[in-house]
Write a protein that binds this DNA or RNA. Structure first.
Length: 428
RNA sequence: GUGGGUAUAGCUCAAUUGGUUAGAGCACUGGGUUGUGGUCCCAGGGGCUGAGGGUUCAAGUCCCUUUACCCACCCCA
């Protein structure tokens, strides 16, 4: 035997039918929730120029520094497999929409993302996201709408145990000022912080507030917090976001230490978490990015977006979401080559009416064939042998009632159809 | 990148202080009088014990190396 080739680390095959069913359900529900809100679905390539992510996500972020799958193409162009979805959408928006003076647009996307990380529960190297982005407005109620749509998606999927955390990073100015204040504070308590956090003082002080080490939590207990240092305009924006969510009945809690890992966020940031996920507890996250479009060469168009982790979401979905279509299942069983040949001819028509139809292949005993039909969970079995064929009939067996009858071969299609729910479409 | 854990049949797991041909359940295949499923009974196939090396009369079991997977740190979806 030739040497086996196994899949790439952190990249999974999805083959369990209930699991696949859940994916379909999530994708379909996302469309049902977002399209009526004016979102159009778009698909962008997996490969982008590395620069796109370096400039948007941030040069000093973990993602860009250590986690990107990068390559040189045959012309030595630096490319990267997208580690996240927002930057490509912004790029596409700038490239195709702003040129015709479109400054407002809503996009829904779904697809694989890639990050070279050490896999663990809820963390893969190829994972999938569904995300949405809205360009064209800085209105705080848009923030509330975005968050509320995600909330609604989760509710429609029957998800019960999730929490919503909210924070405001303020405008870029607010953030810069706060960053300086915080860095100063941290420097004062430097010797009480872990090594990692000491490095963060210069590089990314906000992250220190998110550190989970007990020593750091204690040391930063009365650090200056972001919401307290927002300029009046940002504070007002944040207040309206909260009021908007309340009026939609969306529950949330404020987390002044919530920091997101991508540089482009400002003002409102949010995260949906679940206790059932293990250490990687974020199911979805997002925020506002008012300067990104401009930074990527577009006009000054404010925007907000979110992304959810497909694998994480699916793992906490209720069982019902994995139930597959209720289409009737019909098993065709021939006892000799001529019978099989005739039944084979019926496949197309029967499948066209929405039934799941399978023809038994292979020369085993009738008993085994029946056993197979049973394991396949057939509701109906059509049995045809030489005896029947001579008389022009086939046996139609109802597996549940354990009853069967002979029907003329010429009427099989009609007889069967009349017993199946009419116009039965395959449900998602 | 740093820790910790696991690796035996397709799946879930056994195998006494190292001791004969490595077992069970589920699954699979066939049969229980000739062409009828589920429950039941019987039989059968299937493992170089992740890989490589070492200690020993003897290794699934002990030691080293390696690979894969899992979990956590970190980071995030």
């Amino acid at each position: 035997m030739a040497k086996k080739i196994s899949g790439v680390k952190g990249m999974e095959d999805l083959f369990d039918s209930e699991e696949v069913q859940k994916w379909l359900k999530v994708e379909q529900t996302a469309r049902r929730v977002f399209k009526p809100a004016g979102f159009q679905e778009i698909r962008t390539p997996i490969l982008e120029e590395s620069d796109l992510f370096e400039r948007s996500v941030g040069e000093t972020t973990e993602i860009v520094e250590k986690e990107m799958y990068t390559l040189l193409d045959r012309n030595d162009k630096r490319l990267a497999m997208r580690p996240e979805g927002t930057a490509p959408i912004v790029r596409a928006f700038v490239e195709h929409f702003t040129s015709h003076n479109v400054q407002e647009a809503r996009f829904l996307y779904m697809g694989p993302m890639f990050r070279y990380e050490r896999p663990q529960k809820g963390r893969l190297r190829q994972f999938h996201q569904i995300g949405a982005e809205v360009f064209g407005s800085d209105h705080p109620l848009l923030d509330a709408e975005m968050i509320s749509l995600v909330h609604r998606l989760f509710t429609e999927l029957g998800l019960e145990s999730f929490q919503l955390q909210l924070n405001s990073l303020g405008s870029r100015d607010d953030r810069e000022k706060y960053r300086a204040t915080l860095a100063k504070f941290l420097d004062g308590i430097k010797d009480r912080l872990c090594e990692e956090c000491q490095r963060r003082i210069v590089r990314n002080p906000l992250r220190a507030l998110d550190c989970k080490k007990p020593g750091c939590i204690e040391a930063t207990a009365n650090a200056p917090l972001l919401p307290d240092s927002l300029a009046p305009e940002s504070a007002e924006h944040f207040a309206v976001v909260q009021a908007g969510l309340k009026s939609q009945g969306v529950e949330f809690s404020l987390n002044p230490r919530l920091v997101r890992g991508l540089d482009y966020y400002e003002k409102t940031v949010f995260e949906f978490t679940s206790g059932e996920l293990g250490a990687q507890n974020a199911v979805a996250g997002g925020g506002r990015y008012n300067d990104l479009v401009q930074e990527l060469g577009g006009p000054a168009v404010p925007a907000i977006g979110f992304a959810l982790g497909m694998e994480r979401l699916v793992s906490i979905l209720p069982e019902e979401a994995g139930k597959s279509s209720g289409a009737p299942r019909v098993y065709l069983l021939g006892l000799d080559p001529q019978s099989e040949q005739w039944l084979f001819g019926q496949l197309r028509e029967l499948r066209a009416i929405g039934a799941v139809v399978e023809l038994d292949f292979g020369g085993v005993s009738l008993k085994s064939k029946m056993r197979r039909a049973d394991r396949w969970k057939a509701e109906w079995v059509v049995l045809l042998g030489e005896e029947e064929r001579k008389r022009g009939v086939a046996i139609l067996r109802d597996m549940q009632n354990q009853s069967q009858e002979e029907v003329p071969m010429s009427e099989l299609f009609m007889r069967l159809t009349s017993r199946l729910p009419t116009m039965h479409f395959l449900k998602m």
